[in-house]
Design a protein around this nucleic acid. Structure first.
Lengths: 113, 113
DNA sequence: CTTGTATATGCCTTGTGCGGCATATTAGGG
DNA sequence: CCCTAATATGCCGCACAAGGCATATACAAG
């Protein structure tokens, strides 16, 4: 499980990352907001930390986790060559995203019919 | 294996997508360039097709595969919120990418041409 | 030192993705 | 028709990630 792509393949990990995108969080806060068990959160955070997606600092008994950008940038870099390609097919995406509309785990999109 | 993220977690599939980014290819061409066995290529193409990453047209006994943009755009959309975040940490990426230097998905680093 | 809170880790089970290999299918040519 | 090229599919075994649950560690406070 070394590559950044494998790391973000896991939905719960993506949810954690999205959470941290707004601000740093403790394990317990993540646990509550995403309704995962504590060991599960800790394990995912370990994976994320070892892959360089997050770092933590100690605050008494808590650990505060925050994002580190590099691995996600790496994904972004890989994605770059494809962008020029899909400039042609613009409109198709919105239909596509509408159609699935289950996109991000912890995020409810306002779905208009 | 429904999400776009799981699909691109597989290195061989990323390699195939990168190949197709330049131009459409037949199964045999992919097989040769990426040095994978034919069933492996076909299976990955099946996964990619069912997930909407590629489409194929028939050319005699060949199938020509080409990219479809939507699923990758979906990844791009998920990535968007993080971009504003990493504008702060610019320089760190290059050091990071240097350090791993396994960039291109092809298995062999020996560049035969 | 004991207790309580926050987090990490270890073990076990289950599910599933991936490759290898053999074989089926489809299409064209002689 | 039969043969061959190109691609797809089925079956099998293996590796491994993910969650559940129990427990260990860390730190604070009384």
């Amino acid at each position: 499980m070394e590559s950044a792509f494998e790391i973000i393949a896991e939905p719960n990990r993506r949810a954690i990352l999205s959470l941290l995108a707004s601000s740093e969080q403790s394990v317990g806060e993540i646990e509550r907001q995403l309704r995962m068990t504590q060991p599960t959160v800790s394990k995912h955070l370990r994976v994320l930390r070892e892959a360089g997606f997050v770092e933590s600092t100690v605050d008494a008994q808590r650990r505060l986790y925050r994002l580190k950008p590099e691995p996600l940038q790496e994904v972004d870099v890989w994605l770059a060559p494809f962008r020029r390609f899909w400039s042609a097919h613009v409109d198709a995406l919105e239909r596509h995203l509408d159609r699935m509309d289950q996109s991000t785990p912890a995020k409810r999109k306002t779905r208009r019919r």
